[in-house]
Design a protein around this nucleic acid. Structure first.
Length: 414
DNA sequence: TCTGGGGTCCTAGGACCC
DNA sequence: TCTGGGGTCCTAGGACCC
């Protein structure tokens, strides 16, 4: 016998923009964008003009003459996002938070207290509206995938319940792009074989889908189209990697450009890692060229690193390798560093920055010691006076096209 | 439309070991 | 000595999610 529809997917509508309209009533009903140089979020009124997040501010203004840009109240986003997810938590501990504005909840264990899932969803929406002043859409269904699709269909500010007896009918005519795991590339490939709806995908032979998309992705999508979703609602684990990136516009591919930027990125990552007593064995850099094509280089070391200078120097070496392999590329448009293979950092490692590439490891040199002490001093000052209180001299402030507060909202807990 | 930032997972080839 | 198979790790790239 099929289980009941007890999974909720709750998603705050145009979250950042809705918060701004909440804080300033004059913005309500108007097309607004959070951000400036780049659109970080757009209200539904702005989306109607084609304004999208990630879009350059200039382009957005072209699309919508009356677009109002607002600076962003990042502390409020965090507070209100936490509060909205907290409302779900008042009904059940089985909450899986996906991001600042989105979460799953399984209410199977609390219907005897609060009534059927649809009733719980109604109460969540009413409370978020009454207590926080924000619109939130909810999908209710038997599986996570169905609940997620349902909340998308429910937007804006709606509730959609998928009855277990009507699931296939619900999915059949919806575009494949609504499925979890189908982005622009997959959508285009499916279109090539004449598949544009979930129903059509379900009718396609599984081996064809796998040939087209690869084993894992093909199988996953076939399962979802056939409405087989084994995933459970469960609290999220810690991050597996920590990274930072900076878009540069169009800058010459020379040391004077990439060194300060890499130092700034290494500083951001190093500080986060050290705050959690973590370090990582694998460092990956990503270099994007003028035509937006990106190349990565990585190295895995025998010992984990978290010292800013060590991270920066390893990243510099990797970027030099990229540029040596692409000598015809004179312009770079983005630099990124990611640190993975994270592990707990022992006290010894905290003091002695081990772990340059294997051949070049330098255990506890005077220089290494001084660097690590500098990190500790900087970390301590930031802890007392805030994250912007100190900055390495060589770290470029101009590289920050997006406010640090916005970056922080996207960081997953390490 | 020449595009932000922080993440996750998959693929495929090669090295290496047993 | 040759051959084969399986497992694990590393590297580079790609797609996707919010």
């Amino acid at each position: 016998m099929a289980s009941a529809a007890t999974i909720l997917h709750a998603d705050l509508d145009a979250f950042y923009a809705s918060v701004e309209q909440l804080l300033d009533p004059r913005l309500r009903g108007k097309p607004i964008a959070v951000g400036g140089g780049v659109v970080l979020a757009a209200s539904y009124e702005a989306r109607a003009f084609g304004v999208r997040s990630g879009m350059p501010g200039r382009r957005a203004r072209e699309l919508c003459r009356d677009l109002v840009f607002v600076g962003g109240h990042f502390d409020e986003y965090q507070r209100l996002g936490d509060a909205a997810i907290g409302v779900l938590g008042d009904f059940t501990p089985a909450v899986e938070r996906i991001s600042i504005d989105e979460a799953f909840a399984d209410v199977a264990g609390c219907t005897h207290l609060f009534g059927p899932p649809a009733e719980i969803a109604r109460r969540v929406r009413a409370r978020v509206r009454a207590e926080l002043g924000l619109p939130i859409s909810i999908g209710v269904a038997r599986t996570k995938h169905l609940a997620k699709v349902a909340s998308q269909v429910a937007k804006p500010d709606g509730l959609v319940v998928v009855d277990p007896g009507a699931e296939m009918e619900f999915l059949r005519d919806l575009p494949v792009g609504l499925m979890w795991g189908v982005g622009p590339a997959t959508e285009a490939r499916l279109a090539e074989i004449g598949v544009s709806t979930i129903g059509q995908l379900a009718e396609t032979a599984p081996h064809r889908v796998e040939e087209l998309l690869g084993h894992a992705a093909g199988r996953k999508l076939t399962d979802l189209a056939w409405n087989r979703d084994p995933r459970h609602v469960q609290a999220r684990g810690r991050a597996q990697s920590a990274g930072a990136q900076s878009a540069l516009g169009r800058r010459p591919a020379v040391e004077a450009v990439f060194k300060p930027t890499l130092h700034h990125l290494a500083d951001r990552i190093g500080a986060r890692l050290r705050a959690r007593s973590l370090a990582g064995r694998t460092i990956t850099v990503r270099v994007r060229f003028a035509d937006l094509r990106a190349v990565t280089r990585s190295i895995t070391m025998s010992a984990a690193v978290s010292a800013t200078r060590a991270l920066a120097e390893i990243a510099e070496d990797l970027v030099r390798r990229v540029l040596a392999d692409h000598q015809d590329e004179k312009v770079i448009s983005l630099l990124a560093i990611s640190v993975s293979h994270l592990e707990a950092q022992t006290d010894l490692q905290l003091v002695l920055p081990l772990g340059l590439p294997d051949e070049g490891r330098r255990p506890g040199t005077q220089k290494g010691l001084a660097r690590s002490r500098a990190d500790q001093a900087v970390d301590a000052i930031r802890k007392r006076f805030g994250r912007d209180a100190v900055d390495y001299a060589s770290a470029s402030r101009e590289a920050r096209s997006v406010p640090d507060e916005f970056r922080r909202l996207a960081e997953k807990d390490l």
